[in-house]
């Protein structure tokens, strides 16, 4: 493989490996690496295949360069998240599941005691529109306002019953 062909192949692999980076950072990184290669070759004073091969070997694999970028995190890249967030604006906030959940938690709590709110909370957890944090907070609200006082009363009843017998 010729020297320039080796460099092109390396840069191609770097571009392919750097997909998780934001486009501007990706171009910047490729530019930096290209410049580094040219500087190293200028310092070596030769541009044959063996010198290029040695320079590229010292740089490391393109995948390693990309993964050593501090802001690369596992999962989809942040700029993809930002685009998804923009797209999410066009998705209606309320789906059938969310409406049913809120109805069961409000009207259902009055018309179908216990069953309504329980099913409502199940629907809340099935929904993808609320974050896990919001689902946890909603569940905690129900537990704190309803379950804890009821448990407290049951405990009081239990001790009252035990002391009266």
């Amino acid at each position: 493989m010729e020297a320039d062909e080796l460099i092109r192949d390396y840069i191609g692999r770097l571009e392919a490996a750097s997909w998780p980076l934001p486009p501007d950072r990706r171009a910047e990184l490729v530019g930096e690496v290209r410049e580094h290669i040219e500087t190293a070759l200028a310092e070596a004073g030769r541009r044959d295949a063996v010198t290029v091969h040695n320079v590229l070997e010292r740089l490391g694999r393109p995948e390693e360069i990309v993964s050593s970028e501090a802001d690369v995190e596992p999962g989809p890249p942040r700029w993809v998240d930002a685009r998804l967030a923009d797209a999410a604006v066009s998705i209606p906030a309320w789906g059938g599941l969310e409406i049913a959940a809120v109805l069961l938690l409000t009207v259902g709590a009055v018309l179908l005691p216990l069953f309504g709110p329980a099913l409502g909370l199940v629907l809340v957890w099935l929904s993808t529109r609320w974050t896990t944090r919001e689902k946890v907070i909603a569940s905690v609200i129900v537990v704190v306002i309803f379950v804890l006082p009821v448990l407290g009363l049951l405990a009081v009843d239990g001790t009252a019953g035990a002391s009266s017998s």
Partner: peptide, 30 residues
Amino acid sequence: MDIDLIRVLLPLAAIAAAIFLVVALARRRR
């Protein structure tokens, strides 16, 4: 155990949770 208390507390708890969820969705839309 006062059954009336359950009748009051349960809807109250569920409605409070529902209000929180509605507000959470509404805030995200803004």
